[in-house]
Design a binder for these strands. Structure first.
Length: 806
RNA sequence: GCGCCCGUGGCGGAACUGGCAGACGCGCCGGAUUUAGGAUCCGGUCCGAGAGGGUGCAGGUUCGAUCCCUGUCGGGCGCACCA
């Protein structure tokens, strides 16, 4: 036996796979199709992280198993290469981002190939390739033509670090999710995508797909649907104030109103001179405007606000005049930017009322509204509410909405927290937005035959401090004739966010070289939907939501065949540093997969990453434990010294083999890679104990192990295989359910629920036989003699329980 | 604050639908081999000498609870002044 040398074996097979395109998928095959997908990486300068292979190996195991099961498998890979780190690196080192990207991609690709992942490299894509982003731009134009892309002047999130606008989804805890920079509000004219038009369907269609519950819950939560009523309050100024509430039942308890500091009525009323304390209000507005998102969302913050002196509102159900305030606890961007305040039944209103000495009127009985707001909707009964008195909250909601509708004051209304997607970025390294601004024609789409709008080559692509894209500096690129009327016009100079290219990339894999469209209809019909998509939880309300939106739009305009893009989604846990903290350069606990491959081999790294723990949970890295995986492979390798003739499984090992085949198959499908490996280790232990394997037994072991350790098993298959095709396409072993059960089983014998003995009985023995066997045990007999038998239970194959008294 | 998830040996983690807790691996201990170390192989390894006791803690349901229920403590994640 040659010693196990992964550095030689792995190189050999990787070369073989590359030369022969072993894993190329066919768009024309009689086999059933299987589309396995992992999130394509951003090729950063740091190279691959040990977290990447966890996801990639998992679906590689699935892809390899599917090939052995006779599927035509598409398992593709590409590069999500637009984005800020590349641009920042380029700026710092004076290298063009295109070159930085090329270098990073080359490094990433070499690293991925060193792991033996069975990607179809003939379908490699790159979002920064003009032949690719042509279609990103094309999809944007379809959105524009269908009224789902629009430009609007509004207050947006501005990252002071990236000098760039951010989408709501990119602001985490008031700071930039990428750079951690402070986020402030800036009024800018921005391209927006109308994702809100799909809010309801993005919720409803989660019923059609197999996603983890936590993923569904997070998306539903983010979309934030609520049901209530929209209604207007008349004011003494004559202009009504429109409000949204989820508790219209508490209308009689509305003792004041609040409008957001940015509410347009404030400016109107000031202009008319209606507000006696205009200066005070203006000062408050200014203060609110200066606050960053972080300050605004700080928890446990004291309520602040200013009363609007000179204008009062009228409660539409009881005619009472109530004061109006402005406060930053009311958000401009949600609902109508104004609320009716019911301090007795809303925690925030309660706090505000307490601070400003406003009346708290109880309208739902059940709490102690002098002590705290009573927000329960289940148990209360309406009081102090005119015609609603005596109703439950639910009845009152319906009655009041009926009343408001009849009187023409208001109506039932559904609201979402989801906002439209801010789609402009003031940076260089992104897809140019293919729109021309014409002074006569307005926003004119670049004609489709002129796509792609290429990024111009420039010397300086630094972001500007004035909030303009660097592209705006390049006059001969910016100035073009209007495609519609020919008059001098200007290109849009903002670029798309990084999420643009990744919102449809999986479609391109089906037909990556198509020049006529983003993919041919035939290829899309054949491959979609993606059968299994694995990716990180951090993308749940970013990429995953965005790509569902784009896909649904493409479905609506007849471009793709199904309502949802991904039939099944799973999420892996993070790989943490040794102590359980996040891996980071500053902590110095980053493990480089290259080092592990060099020291132990790719197969060992793959097996270890699958064995490290529950796939869906975070797991700390342990290089010590990697050794265990290497030992396991060494022992499989060493088994070749003890291969005996024979294609059959020896009778004594039938049970072990059939059970292992079943277990490995089931575990892999259920994301239990760790226990699948454990089962293989247990089988190996049995084979080692048996002293030898037959050729047939060895083949089964190699097949089961192949998806995890493809190089080593393929190498052994050369000698011990069945002279047929490569192991990669050898048929996956099948098990016989009847052979998965033993002839005799050991069952536990309990007395009063405590295990006292174990006995062997024939499998499927009836109760009398089992009881007799148990009673035959000396210890059990003694215990039974010492008390009175009250009850006896027999769970076939498991245990017997004697319940005795005394 | 609201919603969700998780607490099992020294460590990572197993345990079908309520039925023998600790599979598998790491580490550790002992032995073999070795000049030595490393590597490898064999044996042991929840605690306890034993009866017995053990799945964060306190209760409950049950013949039987890591699993179901109530309360509590600890950790994590998501959303977060969303009316």
């Amino acid at each position: 036996m040659k010693p196990y040398d992964p550095s030689v074996i792995e190189k050999k097979w990787q070369q073989e796979w590359e030369e022969k395109n072993t894993f190329a998928a066919s768009n024309d095959s009689d086999k059933p199709k299987y589309f396995a997908l992992v999130e394509f990486p951003y090729p950063s300068g740091q190279g691959l992280h040990v977290g990447h292979p966890r996801s990639y190996t998992a679906l590689d195991v699935i892809a390899r198993k599917r090939r052995m099961q006779g599927y035509n498998v598409l398992y593709p890979m590409g590069w999500d290469a637009f984005g800020l780190p590349t641009e920042n690196f380029a700026i710092k080192n004076h290298i063009h981002p295109e070159i930085v990207t090329r270098n990073n991609v080359a490094r990433f690709k070499a690293q991925l190939q060193s792991l033996g992942l069975s990607f179809d490299w003939t379908r490699e894509i790159n979002t920064t390739d003009p032949a690719y982003y042509k279609w990103t731009q094309w999809i944007f134009l379809q959105l524009f033509k269908h009224g789902l892309a629009y430009k609007k002047e509004m207050a947006v999130n501005w990252c002071t670090g990236c000098k760039c606008v951010l989408a709501n989804e990119e602001v985490v805890g008031g700071v930039c999710e990428r750079c951690g920079g402070e986020v402030v509000h800036k009024v800018k004219s921005q391209w927006m995508l109308k994702i809100t038009a799909y809010a309801q369907r993005l919720i409803d269609d989660l019923a059609l797909v197999d996603y983890p519950e936590r993923v569904k819950a997070q998306q539903i939560n983010w979309i934030g649907r609520s049901e209530g009523a929209q209604l207007s309050f008349e004011t003494t100024a004559g202009d009504p104030v429109l409000i949204y509430t989820t508790r219209p039942d508490t209308l009689f308890g509305a003792t004041y109103m609040v409008v957001s500091p940015e509410h347009p009525l404030l400016a109107q009323w000031m202009e008319k001179g209606l507000l006696q304390n205009a200066a005070e209000i203006a000062a408050y507005q200014k203060l609110a405007n200066q606050k960053s998102d972080f300050e605004r969302t700080e928890v446990a913050k004291e309520k602040t606000g200013v009363r609007l002196c000179g204008v009062e509102a009228i409660n539409p159900v009881n005619g009472e005049k109530i004061p109006i305030f402005t406060s930053d606890y009311v958000l401009t961007s949600y609902g109508t930017g104004a609320i009716m305040a019911v301090p007795a039944h809303d925690t925030r209103d309660w706090e505000f009322a307490r601070k400003f000495g406003l009346p708290i009127v109880e309208v739902v009985k059940g709490g102690e509204v002098e002590k705290e707001a009573f927000t329960d909707c289940e148990t209360g009964v309406m009081v102090n509410s005119g015609f609603l008195n005596g109703m439950t909250v639910e009845q009152a909601k319906q009655a009041i909405i009926r009343y408001l509708t009849e009187k023409g004051i208001g109506e039932k209304k559904v609201n979402y927290k989801l906002r439209d997607w801010v789609f402009s970025r003031q940076r260089y390294w992104g897809e140019p937005i293919p729109i021309v601004h014409c002074p006569h024609c307005g926003f004119v789409p670049v004609p489709e035959d002129q796509l792609p709008v290429r990024l111009p080559k420039v010397d300086s692509y630094e972001p500007t401090d004035n909030g303009e894209s660097p592209l705006s500096q390049i006059e001969d690129w910016v100035n073009v004739p209007c495609p519609h009327c020919g008059a001098p016009a200007q290109r849009e100079t903002d670029t798309m966010p990084q999420w643009a290219g990744s919102s449809w990339y999986f479609l391109r894999y089906t037909d990556p070289h198509d020049a006529q469209g983003f993919a041919s209809r035939k290829a899309l019909d054949y491959w979609l939907p993606v059968d299994w998509y694995n990716g990180g939880m951090e993308h749940t309300t970013l990429h995953l939501l965005y790509s569902r939106f784009w896909y649904k739009f493409l479905y609506d305009i007849g471009q793709v065949p199904t309502a949802e893009p991904y039939a099944k989604r799973t999420s892996h846990g993070m790989i943490l540093g040794k102590g359980g903290e996040k891996m980071s350069k500053s902590r110095g606990n980053v493990v480089n997969p290259d080092d592990i491959v060099r020291e132990f081999g790719a197969d060992t790294l793959r097996v270890y990453e699958m064995f490290i723990g529950d796939f869906e949970k975070a797991a700390p890295w342990s290089t010590d434990s990697v050794r265990g995986s290497r030992r396991f492979l060494e022992r499989v390798w060493a088994l070749q010294d003890n291969v005996a003739d024979g294609d059959a499984v020896r009778p004594a090992l039938e049970l072990a083999f059939h059970k292992t085949i079943r277990k490995v198959g089931e575990d892999v499908e259920n994301l239990k890679f760790n226990t699948a490996i454990a089962a293989l280790m247990a089988l190996l232990n049995e084979l080692t104990a048996a002293g030898s394997v037959t050729r047939g037994e060895y083949r089964i072991l190699l097949k089961l192990l192949n998806p995890f350790a493809p190089h080593m098993t393929e190498e052994l298959w050369e000698t011990y295989g069945d002279n047929g095709a490569q192991l990669a396409y050898a048929p996956w072993p099948v098990f016989d359910q009847a052979k998965c059960v033993a002839d005799t089983v050991e069952i536990a014998v309990q007395v009063n629920g405590k295990v006292k003995a174990r006995v062997m009985i024939p499998n499927g023995a009836d109760a009398p036989t089992a009881y007799a066997a148990a009673r035959a045990d000396e210890k059990i007999a003694a215990l039974l003699a010492g008390g009175q038998l009250v009850k006896e239970l027999y769970v076939p194959g498991k245990l017997i329980n004697f319940v005795i008294k005394g």
